[in-house]
Design a binder for these strands. Structure first.
Lengths: 234, 234
DNA sequence: CGCAAAATTGAACCCAATCAATGTTCGTGG
DNA sequence: CCACGAACATTGATTGGGTTCAATTTTGCG
């Protein structure tokens, strides 16, 4: 395991403030693994053995019920996933698979719980992380319940634009079918949503999207800091 | 403030393990208030001043976007709400209003954060609580994205039945319009969902519902421990 | 270059929202 | 205690958003 990977880890808010001893405890039995795209890392219903950290690549969190499947979140580097399951020591509620080749760091769940029990600083950091994640899901639930498909797409585009620092053109970092599922619709319907947004000067070519008139989209969805995490205040 | 109310509070998992001094810190500046039905307790976007505890009654957590409004959860005694906002010291993402006359205990947010910072046991308890809540919302998001309206109703009915210890008849403890919004549909559509479930031997009279054939509903939704919190294992 | 998977488009269908009208319930005041 | 009114619930008709199925085009990759 490379030491600059450890540095990456150490810089995460989650690991700030814990002692070096605690950090060593967490990482000594950890291991790093490379996965190609489309590899299932964890399955809904399994017991958590590791806290996963995406160092490089892209991971899709999804869930199934009967025939249906839906994407819940996309995890980008550098961040952890399924912390809640690890810390409560309950089964996973989501499955995870790589979308592209990825480097994943795996910290033994037992170590995480041990340091959690021993180091108040870690416990407090976990509170911060869980609080943040909780609020993310609440936002997503509101997004789903309060907005139409086209609106969710428009909001997502504006969010990506924000991340890209206001760039005119953005690129979807994964397949459109994945985006469709993330937004809670079928691939067909995503196509139609894009067709709808053409009237708002959104043009597509493959995964690249040009947002010609952000103000028009803005007017359509009226992004809210109560739903869209990227939007703080006005 | 009555001492048996303090006992109720003390017994919540959230307050287990903290010192008496810490508990006193939390409760000394707390106050208890009675509210009639339909009183708004907090508003989306406000800053948290108190951690609220429902001692008696029913509180509805909801959110608005433009014209639309949706119910996110119903809080029943005895439990806290908006802990995540208090602990991260961020604005509320939900509003709250009483559904019936209620007794609400309000703990100053500053005290909560103080004890959180000072008492590792409290920090750990909060992790447990947040982890649990987080998983609740994930379940709800899956419920919304993976199930149809009628299925969500069927699952909700089976959950209520479980809570009522398998009773044949259950009673919706609030208006049907609230249930409709909680389940993510219109009141009209809830009526039709009930009409659909008549084929599964579900009969209604006002708020009272008779589930004549639980197995039929079961077959319809196939409740899953990955979505339905009340269902553990098979 | 060729193939397989992904994306798009069209058509039919279905679930859900909206609009409108009626029936029911419940709280209030006479 | 009854009568009344307002809010809630239900039902019907219509519309609309979204899914499904099928066929075609495009893309990406070996």
């Amino acid at each position: 395991m490379r030491s600059d990977d450890l540095d990456l880890l150490r810089e995460l808010p989650l690991f700030q403030g814990i002692s070096d001893a605690g950090f060593r405890e967490l990482t000594q039995a950890a291991f790093l693994q490379r996965f190609p795209a489309q590899v299932t890392l964890i399955n809904e219903g399994e017991h958590p053995d590791f806290l996963h950290v995406v160092l490089e690549g892209l991971v899709e969190m999804f869930a199934r019920d009967r025939q249906r499947e839906t994407v819940l979140t996309i995890v980008q580097p550098v961040s952890t996933f399924i912390l809640a399951a690890v810390i409560t020591d309950e089964i996973y509620l989501k499955s995870a698979r790589t979308l592209v080749a990825s480097r994943i760091l795996m910290l033994p769940a037992a170590s995480v719980r041990k340091v959690f029990a021993e180091e108040p600083a870690f416990a407090r950091a976990i509170v911060g992380e869980l609080g943040f994640r909780y609020r993310e899901v609440v936002r997503e639930l509101k997004n789903q319940k309060l907005r139409s498909g086209a609106e969710r797409l428009a909001a997502w585009l504006l969010g990506q634009r924000e991340i890209a620092d206001g760039a005119r053109e953005i690129t979807i970092p994964f397949e459109k079918r994945v985006l469709a599922s993330l937004l809670g619709m079928t691939p067909e319907n995503l196509s139609r949503a894009f067709a709808t947004l053409a009237a708002y000067d959104v043009t597509t070519s493959g995964r690249r999207i040009v947002i010609g008139d952000p103000a028009a989209l803005w007017k359509l969805v009226q992004p809210s800091q109560f739903i869209d995490e990227w939007k703080n205040g006005e």
